[in-house]
């Protein structure tokens, strides 16, 4: 099973974990840390995942107060690592 991670649990950061799912099962998102920003996080995750054409993954975001620019960066790093993961 492919898996990739980017980011940290430090203040103002977030940790994004991507885990492979069965073909055709689409994206799923789980967020921990700051549920009140769930809608904004969901929108950003959808936006970045769409721009990289990634699907069939479970995305787990552990948020420590990351701004949108940080979340986007961690998502991009995790996706690029996921795409190069051979497992």
């Amino acid at each position: 099973m492919k898996k990739a991670l980017a980011g940290t649990l430090e203040s103002s950061d977030c940790c994004v974990t991507l885990t492979e799912k069965n073909l055709g099962s689409g994206l799923s998102l789980t967020v921990s840390g700051t549920e009140r920003f769930m809608s904004a996080i969901t929108e950003t995750v959808g936006d970045v995942a769409g721009s990289f054409g990634i699907s069939d993954v479970d995305i787990f975001v552990q948020d420590r107060g990351a701004l949108d620019v940080v979340l986007r960066s961690r998502l991009e790093a995790a996706i690029l690592r996921y795409e190069t993961d051979e497992a």
Partner: peptide, 15 residues
């Protein structure tokens, strides 16, 4: 290095 490079690029671009 990969994650830092992306973060630095995006922070520099947006702030």
């Amino acid at each position: 290095k990969d994650a830092a490079r992306i973060l630095v690029r995006n922070v520099l671009s947006s702030q």
